[in-house]
Design a protein around this nucleic acid. Structure first.
Lengths: 244, 244
DNA sequence: CGGGGACTTGATACTGTTCAATTTCCGTGG
DNA sequence: CCACGGAAATTGAACAGTATCAAGTCCCCG
């Protein structure tokens, strides 16, 4: 999926897809849109495994993912860690860092990716002039809060099968929203990363996926997943997956 | 703690404590502060069990808790619910609602409480004029995201004892920050609500608290808690409790 | 003072973890 | 291009932690 965009023309301004979340829903005039685009940096390339930022680093910018896939994780002094999310093209990350002008989690590229930088001071300044942009920025942050509520529900009250079903359906929806297949896709993360995100051990993730395959809900072969029975997966928790 | 404030003078403007989180850290001139205070509604009283707002209700305002104690919870169609937080005086709630102009969770008073309304449109308008206020609003939202990361870590990787220890230490810190005792306090919520928040059943909460008492970490009698060995509790997860 | 909800405690069941052994996959270098 | 080696994934068996079910007590509200 990211291959189509691999570092051809770094000088092209980050419009379109990379600003999907930031811009598309915003009702801005062409002139206002240009002002926003001027603020956005050229895009930067990251290799798989690269850190976009690390916990403790100074906060200057939010980041819009143009292509690729990231995970964010919080680290605990005792060595424990928690994956807090998987982010894909069009999503904005780094908002946790505003609270203390310092990043509180790591962002790691799960595949080769491209990212646009959104200098936060300038973003705030512009949003003071453009109420539509201001409101949109607030909505993005609010949406992140809502997403995390959903994960709290998942972690607090769902069983392993339900968690995996919710996870797969959420990925499916997000791929579909970007024009990719809702039923056939590649997992970008390892079983361990999935398990860490969902509060499960990697063995449980593996076993549960195998079980889904046995009963005909999905087909899995390593990172390649095909959803064979969408409704069957949805029935695990009664309702379509919310924003995860 | 709330008794000292119970509905005496509803006409008193919501300054001081109720704006602790919203205002104190903000670097505003007296004049600017007055503009902010003018925006804030008179305070409204809620009785224990009252809903401040319900999931699905239209979003107009954030709310600053002046006195009292609330819980927020998300509901799932299948009847499952998840307590997403316990809020006390000086904290702002309702930010999840910005994303869709609709509340996505319930806020319920756990004791008689007073709340100030912050009309969001006017708050946005004012923050366009006052960069310090704008930045502070962003920090409040970001802090909520960080708080939820901490809960994800707790729900995803901690055992029952660690969760309860983190919970008690968090309450302790927040009471201390408000001038109350860090070691002696009343729980405002039931065992079931604690368990729901921490991803545990009420029996497990009860057992774990009893166990803490047996080993001399705390003293519990119903909702009255005394922390006897702060360091012992902290040692459960290696470090002081983050914002919960 | 009565009654219902909140809490405690015990016995048992079950889900997911832990430990361990293989197998498969994939990137790297010959 | 193929072979190699380490990481990732699968699978099994025993175990641990928490949930469940149940009984009984305590507390607080009306």
């Amino acid at each position: 999926m990211s291959k189509a965009f691999t570092l051809p023309q770094l000088r092209v301004a980050c419009s379109g897809c990379s600003l999907r979340e930031l811009c598309l829903p915003v009702d801005l005039t062409d002139e206002e849109m240009r002002r926003l685009e001027r603020l956005v940096s050229e895009k930067h390339a990251y290799r798989r495994g690269d850190y976009l930022y690390r916990s403790g680093a100074r906060f200057d910018s939010l980041y819009a993912i143009r292509t690729g896939f990231f995970k964010t994780q919080v680290l605990h002094e005792d060595g424990r860690e928690q994956v807090t999310g998987f982010q894909m093209a069009g999503e904005i990350i780094g908002m946790d860092a505003i609270s203390n002008d310092m990043h509180t989690c790591d962002a790691v590229a799960l595949e080769d990716s491209e990212v646009c930088e959104l200098p936060f001071n300038r973003l705030e300044a512009l949003s003071r002039e453009l109420p539509a942009l201001q409101r949109h920025l607030h909505k993005i942050m609010s949406r992140e809060i809502v997403r995390e509520h959903g994960i709290m529900l998942l972690l607090g009250s769902m069983r392993a099968e339900e968690r995996l079903a919710a996870f797969l359906l959420n990925l499916s929806q997000r791929f579909a929203a970007r024009g990719y297949s809702a039923t056939v896709f590649q997992l970008r993360m390892t079983r361990q990363e999935i398990g860490n995100y969902l509060g499960l051990k990697l063995e449980t993730v593996s076993r549960t996926l195998s079980h889904f395959q046995e009963v005909g809900l999905i087909s899995v072969r390593n990172k390649a997943v095909e959803i064979l029975d969408m409704k069957g997966l949805q029935s695990f928790f009664g309702v379509a997956a919310g924003p995860l």
